[in-house]
């Protein structure tokens, strides 16, 4: 017989799964818009606002479960982690909005050399893969998949630093391109961090182990 708290936990799980799907769509849309210099800010803003509202709902549900059931052990770890993951997903949305904003203000990478466009494109692909990994790990509570994020996380961090070093040495780049591409690289690196936090939370839910995958 399932416990009463299980219904609440299931509701939270369903809500987070929906958030995960919307998160990926939002991020993919903003990156596509950015790479093609096409304005998608309005759509992304609406999606991001929805994600923030969903994160608030996850938090409200968590508080209700805490007040009503005084959860412990894996229940407590799950609720605590769901709140964190809800926040991480909302951050994905906000970074998506930031990407859309700099796209509109600075015309994406329009004024950049080909190598910059290729570099950002490659970094975006890697970060989207990390975001998908975090969402799939959550859906399946798969700690092996969650732990696999360590490698791409390190690669993205290194790509970010390498990009800045290369950009510093770049001659004849427009200020629009420098600001746009460096901000974009920074946002991507931060999104990758949040994907990693999500994966750390999944390991914590399943094992109780607090690990750092960075």
């Amino acid at each position: 017989m399932s416990r009463i708290i299980d219904r609440g936990l299931e509701e939270q799980s369903v809500l987070l799964t929906k958030m995960g799907e919307l998160t990926y769509e939002t991020l993919a849309l903003s990156i596509r818009g950015y790479l093609s210099s096409r304005s998608v800010e309005q759509e992304v803003r609406e999606m991001s606002d929805t994600l923030v509202a969903m994160a608030d709902k996850v938090e409200d549900q968590a508080f209700q479960l805490i007040v009503r059931f005084q959860p412990v052990a894996s229940d407590l770890r799950t609720i605590k982690s769901y709140m964190k993951i809800g926040y991480d997903f909302a951050r994905y949305g906000r970074y998506s909005l930031d990407i859309s904003y700099i796209n509109d203000q600075l015309e994406g990478l329009k004024e950049c050399d080909a190598w910059i466009r290729e570099y950002i494109n490659e970094m975006s692909t890697k970060v989207l893969y990390m975001v998908k990994t975090s969402i799939d790990s959550l859906r399946r509570l798969d700690i092996t998949l969650a732990k696999s994020i360590l490698q791409p996380e390190r690669e993205v961090d290194q790509m970010y630093l390498d990009f800045l070093n290369r950009l510093i040495r770049q001659e004849q780049a427009s200020s629009k391109c420098i600001i746009s591409s460096s901000l974009m690289a920074r946002y991507l690196e931060r999104i990758a961090d949040h994907a990693t936090y999500v994966c750390e939370s999944i390991v914590y839910i399943v094992t109780g182990e607090k690990i750092v995958l960075r």
């Binding site: 416990r3 708290i5 412990v72 052990a73 894996s74 229940d75 407590l76 770890r77 109780g208």
Partner: peptide, 17 residues
């Protein structure tokens, strides 16, 4: 014990299973 019990029996008891 209440955040991360090591024994599955403890987990089951304190979570009300």
């Amino acid at each position: 014990i209440f955040e991360n019990p090591k024994n599955p029996l403890t987990e089951k008891y304190i979570t009300g299973e």
